[in-house]
Design a protein around this nucleic acid. Structure first.
Lengths: 211, 211
DNA sequence: CGCTGAAATTGCGTGTCCCGCAATTTTTCT
DNA sequence: AGAAAAATTGCGGGACACGCAATTTCAGCG
């Protein structure tokens, strides 16, 4: 039972996020001012900055919320599950829900949004900033799961940051793929390749990319 | 034989970089304005923005130039060298030159600079922005070396972006390490772990971290 | 119900930043 | 030496982020 206060805050935040993303997609990123977003959400420009510290935060908020969800997803996996199984599921899930499966393609608007996030340098910088901030928590979760102290051994941080990077690379490749490739299997491939060694496939003895 | 024009441009760019970093270290990042940097370098504030598009670009320029150097270093490696040997050398070299070896510790000022780059969110964002921009070229270099088209196969991008991430993680761990750990061997360990699979060391069958 | 304290919204002002434009100075080339 | 090209500079505007204080809105209680 949440009070009216909290519900209103969430509604305002959501309205700002939605309006910001919609306007950015309609007009292009540089043709949107903070004033426009605030007006579209029905609040004052000053209130905008009470919710988001920069113009780009609101636009990337949906995406960065998904990233944050990955950490929670990892913590929600059964503790005895092997690390890379749990990590793969946790990283893939936020994308699986929205980006469609093999037979249900992603909505054009979502695709355009993700594309904009990857093409606009300012938005890339913002989302990567959050990704790195979150990677600390992700490393902590990996540390708990493996029993390795992230302060003493770089392994948890290494796993967290490279896994996040692998997802980034996978998404970027997905956006460029022609003909289109289903995202979720691609992400699984990337994470599997990461976990089993990124051996040069032009040399002998590796078959992780032939399946 | 370079003309006067080009030499002067390099000199002013270098003066701006140096002044920006020095002032940021002396006063703290938020207590330095573009006007101050320009004054310290002996140019007008307007000229500053002819060289750097943002206040933070100049401060991170030394570091981002190092990152760019990694790509050139990879391209300079002998073409028949195994991928991960070449990649490790290319990624480590820019750090090896400045961050000291086991017996020659890094200079305190450089350490403070790198620490600031990792602690200040604005500088992190700027350096990561450049890192990702460069990672495209790094992926291209990996593609050439392996003969794999980055547009068709995600492998080159995956290698490039995860290797960059591994270096980031290594540097971050190095900054936190107490007692201090020599950086170069640590980076080599991180890249070797990445290349040979980030298997969970708490499970059996992996010895890459015991050497 | 009405009151009181807490929390959120808002308006205003300020400092900073980034860039377009045109004028001026500096370098290069013949 | 003089013309062309390039860099520097001053000016001005647009936008952004934030501190501060006033106002409005909500929550809890007698």
């Amino acid at each position: 039972m949440t009070g009216l206060r909290e519900r209103k805050k969430r509604a305002t935040r959501d309205a700002l996020m939605t309006a910001a993303l919609r306007l950015a997609l309609e007009r292009g990123l540089e043709n949107v001012r903070v004033e426009d977003i605030a007006a579209a959400a029905g609040v004052s420009p000053r209130t905008y900055n009470n919710y988001f510290a920069s113009k780009y935060e609101a636009i990337t908020a949906r995406h960065t919320d998904r990233v944050r969800a990955s950490v929670a997803a990892l913590r929600a996996r059964p503790p005895d599950e092997p690390l890379w199984d749990a990590l793969t599921e946790a990283m893939v899930r936020p994308w699986a829900e929205h980006a469609g499966t093999t037979d249900t393609p992603p909505s054009p608007e979502l695709l355009a949004a993700i594309r904009m996030l990857n093409d606009e340098p300012a938005l890339r910088a913002e989302s990567v900033r959050v990704a790195f901030a979150v990677s600390g928590e992700l490393a902590a979760a990996v540390g708990e799961r493996t029993g390795i102290d992230p302060g003493r051994d770089p392994y948890p941080s290494l796993v967290a940051v490279t896994a996040a990077a692998a997802v980034q690379a996978g998404v970027a490749h997905w956006l460029r793929s022609d003909p289109p490739v289903p995202l979720v299997p691609l992400l699984r491939d990337c994470l599997r390749a990461l976990a089993s060694g990124l051996a040069d496939p032009t040399r002998e003895g590796d078959d992780s990319w032939t399946s």
